[in-house]
Design a binder for these strands. Structure first.
Lengths: 142, 142
DNA sequence: CGGTTCTACTTTCAGCCGGAAAGGAAATGA
DNA sequence: TCATTTCCTTTCCGGCTGAAAGTAGAACCG
């Protein structure tokens, strides 16, 4: 069995859903020349294959006062710090995304806070587990 | 919450939609003690305020053969490299996200490719504009 | 105090969507 | 050739969404 079993039509449906997941199956069907039910079946299949993991919204953090957007590389010194750090990151509301990484550093994470103070508070908590390097987002290009 | 016009109930609705945008207004209403129609009105308002920018899906690049996920910090030496680099990044299909950053480096970007070779090819192209540091995603924690 | 206005909610209703079930067409293999 | 599988279409019903109309409460003001 190959890694993926998705044809061109599936891929088009996927792209349409990424752009706007409120499109009705019927409308998608009109674009890919299928009935809404056939589109529904393909989408269901992609969910079962875990190509589609869920439905969500695209939202603007700036509009609700989440003014700081930071990329943080975390450096952990001891093995025993990993699990506690992961738990910390999972539990912290301001941590939007966390990845284990290769290369310099152990983890990369995306953090959003209302202001600099809140970011500093988070960084202080982070010191318990290890060191970090911070890059602030100064504007999204893409 | 902030200087913006959104109250705690709006925020809860927002969180619920981020988690699962297929929740019916009615079900959301049951959780925040409103009717489905009232929830619908609040969501509509958040769309008008551009807090909610759109509906999309959460999908898994690995399942369709996008096996490499890398975080790249880009270092540009001369001012004149910035615009060409930005154009390059915008045009390149494998570049999923780009931000101007403060701190070490000039830009941060997220790249997905089918394999190591494709990543190397991209990195070669990148050398035209400046230097870079690569971190490979070894697994998403959150 | 009474009247006006505004905001946010609920109720009601019509139309549309999505999933299930049943059936058809094309490809595959014994 | 027939059986099987896959993928599609058609049909149908329950449930959701959005619009419209009505209601309750707060704020404001003469």
């Amino acid at each position: 069995m190959t890694a993926t079993q998705i044809d061109h039509t599936d891929y088009r449906i996927l792209q349409l859903l990424i752009e706007d997941s409120t499109l009705s199956h019927k409308d998608i069907g009109a674009l890919v020349h299928l009935t809404g039910q056939a589109v529904g079946a393909r989408i269901r299949r992609m969910r079962e294959l875990e190509i589609i993991e869920g439905y969500t919204i695209h939202w603007n953090p700036l509009r609700i006062g989440q003014n700081i957007h930071a990329f943080i590389t975390v450096f952990l010194s001891t093995k025993s710090d990993h699990l506690p750090f992961q738990e910390f990151a999972k539990a912290h509301d301001n941590v939007a995304e966390v990845h284990r990484i290769s290369g310099e550093g152990c983890y990369w994470m995306r953090v959003r806070t209302v202001n600099q103070e809140a970011l500093n508070a988070l960084l202080d908590e982070l010191l318990v587990y290890g060191n970090y390097r911070v890059n602030l987002d100064m504007g999204q290009i893409k």
